[in-house]
Design a protein around this nucleic acid. Sequence first.
DNA 1: TTGATTTTTAAATAATTTTCAAAAATGTCG
DNA 2: CGACATTTTTGAAAATTATTTAAAAATCAA
Lengths: 223, 223
Amino acid sequence: MAKLLIVDDEPRIRDLIAKYAQYEGYETVQAQDGVDAVQLCRKNDYDLIIMDVMMPQLNGFAATKEIRRTKQTPIIMLSARGEEYDRIHGFELGVDDYVQKPFSPKELMMRIDAVLRRLSPKVESMKDVFHIEGLCINCSSRIVTVDGKKVPLSPKEFELLLYMVRHRGIALTRDRLLDQVWGFDYFGDNRTLDTHIKLVRKHIEPYSKYIVTLRGVGYRFEE
Amino acid sequence: MAKLLIVDDEPRIRDLIAKYAQYEGYETVQAQDGVDAVQLCRKNDYDLIIMDVMMPQLNGFAATKEIRRTKQTPIIMLSARGEEYDRIHGFELGVDDYVQKPFSPKELMMRIDAVLRRLSPKVESMKDVFHIEGLCINCSSRIVTVDGKKVPLSPKEFELLLYMVRHRGIALTRDRLLDQVWGFDYFGDNRTLDTHIKLVRKHIEPYSKYIVTLRGVGYRFEE
DNA sequence: TTGATTTTTAAATAATTTTCAAAAATGTCG
DNA sequence: CGACATTTTTGAAAATTATTTAAAAATCAA
């Protein structure tokens, strides 16, 4: 479960971001300025930092520079429109993405996802909760809900769904799914996977449309 | 999926190149100068390096020389107009191509493609995404779109199209296509290939013009 | 043992690949 | 240039192969 550090001098903005991030299953920690952020980073590890550019005491650039002396934590910058576009874009310390204020929380969440997926392929998507339309998958509680209603998935069904959601958008071969979810080395014609796909589809109705079958290949969970 | 190292002291240029390269389906890593590049190359393997000539600390030549002591990674040099034309062209360490600034990103992308295809025939074009006019082929998701709209291709159709696109610009004999896509040694009067070409053409309309038939030989996907 | 879950099996359904034959296009040679 | 031979394109039907489904059997955990 990924931990985010949110750095902004405006408490309302911090809270807004924190609320959304928590909804998406991230753990959040807040810092009110650059000095605070640097101190926190010295003592703790975060998976990603969301940092405002304009802050009293130590601004976003200075804080980033300081943090980057010891840690390679991914950073997403928040900046007001027109503010220092060049510096941000070409920031030599390399921020991993930046979002202009005012931003939609949804967009920021997507950027967080994207940065984590790009930079931490090993931990895969570290989110604890996935929301796909009305389908919600909570990893730590292993609860799946469809339009707010809990659906009972068997362990295998849950693992299969989770694996597909974590690797959504790419074609997953039958071998890979069998390998990753079951741990077998697929031999011969085994209809186990198909059967479980069917069960998952039945359970997540009406969102089974997201699982598309790639004939002769496997399946893909649509993005 | 090929990984590119982009070395330039100007962050805006780096970002511009990175943005285009990502659109073309490459993974990118950036370095701000020669020293940085040499260090990165020591620890990691890249499939191709795009290196600016003029940089503080360690210039493009020196960095190339150093990197080439241990690795044979293909290198494309970027140089300002008129800058050291001779040295680049006749560079003893052998850069694989060079592009003059100011360059069009599109041209640079074509050069990258060309160098990789020339030097890494095994990995073929390692791109994950191909854009040919309004035709887009995404390998990992196996999604093909025509002017933004998904088109459903059967497995064989997808493989055939992908093979041709990966080997575009050259004449592909019927035997070779049958061999590579079907995996058998063509015998007798089998119209299988023709029929699949027909299906692919129908599906990628209006871009079927890119598949030209070479009578008595086979087909070619136009560059 | 019991109830739930997972795997296997077999039949039904669906989609893809191949074959075939006729039509169109292209190239060759007198 | 024009007729013939060859090759490719096309559309439809047949054959093959993959997927879905439902139900039965096996396995596992309480």
